[in-house]
């Protein structure tokens, strides 16, 4: 990989991972994955957690890395699939399903865009010995596409379509990702928000609130929209 990592710590993991494997991951560590990764987002969560449908047998033994994403993929005439690129989608919307999901799936790595709150990490991730990896940029779809060596399986394709189906892919040097959380449930994004907050407060000093307020609007610059 030709990306300049600077002084950032870089780790390569093989999926399925154990909690032990994740011990050395600090927030801000650059991570690459090998093995099998699967996609699951609202379509799958609803089916399995609300509709009671069964996950593929022995899922956690095949993979325990759940990617919040959909591929840019299409079906060939012979029924095989062609995946071009892969990019994470924002994970904060999926937090309400995670508690149950960890139980039924045995996931230890959640990958997506933008992380979740440290509150979610402490409530759902820490008890399950799991961490969150965020995609980079977030547009590194082509790099991630390159890391996919083959499609192992697709579940619920006919019912859910390309975007929501469960894609299981064999990956090699799949990344880069950045660890947003560690096993203690700290969040890199929240640490960075805290660092930029002082500068933001200063920028706003002396500016006036608009004449017409918005209902429910706050002026707390530490707030987030997720």
């Amino acid at each position: 990989m030709a990306i300049d990592h600077g002084k950032l710590k870089t780790v390569s993991l093989t999926v399925p991972v154990t909690t032990e494997d994740l011990k050395d991951i600090e927030i801000g560590t650059i991570v690459y994955l090998n093995g099998v990764v699967y996609t699951a987002r609202e379509g799958i969560y609803k089916k399995v957690l609300e509709g009671g449908e069964q996950l593929p047998a022995h899922l956690a033994e095949i993979s325990n890395a759940n990617f919040h994403c959909s591929p840019a993929a299409s079906q060939n005439a012979d029924g095989t699939f062609n995946i071009g690129a892969m990019t994470g989608t924002a994970s904060f919307r999926f937090s309400k399903w995670l508690e149950k999901w960890f139980k039924v799936s045995g996931a230890k790595i959640i990958i997506g865009k933008g992380g979740m709150t440290s509150e979610d990490y402490k409530k759902y991730f820490v008890p399950n010995g799991a961490i969150y990896l965020t995609t980079v940029g977030y547009g590194t779809g082509a790099l991630l596409g390159r890391g996919i060596k083959s499609i192992k399986d697709v579940h619920w394709y006919d019912e859910l379509g390309v975007a929501q189906a469960m894609w299981m892919v064999n990956v090699e040097n799949f990344g880069p990702f950045i660890a947003d959380s560690d096993l203690a449930g700290n969040s890199l994004f929240e640490r960075e928000n805290e660092k930029v907050k002082a500068g933001i407060d200063k920028l706003y000093e002396g500016t006036r609130a608009p004449a017409l307020r918005r209902y429910g609007e706050t002026n707390d610059r530490g707030d987030e929209v997720i």
Partner: peptide, 23 residues
């Protein structure tokens, strides 16, 4: 690091003729 990864990504997209972002 993010900016360098993006620059690398555009290159990969061009070389492989694949979408730069899957969204």
């Amino acid at each position: 690091f993010v900016l360098n990864a993006m620059l690398e990504n555009y290159q990969a997209a061009k070389e492989d003729r694949r979408a730069m972002c899957a969204d």
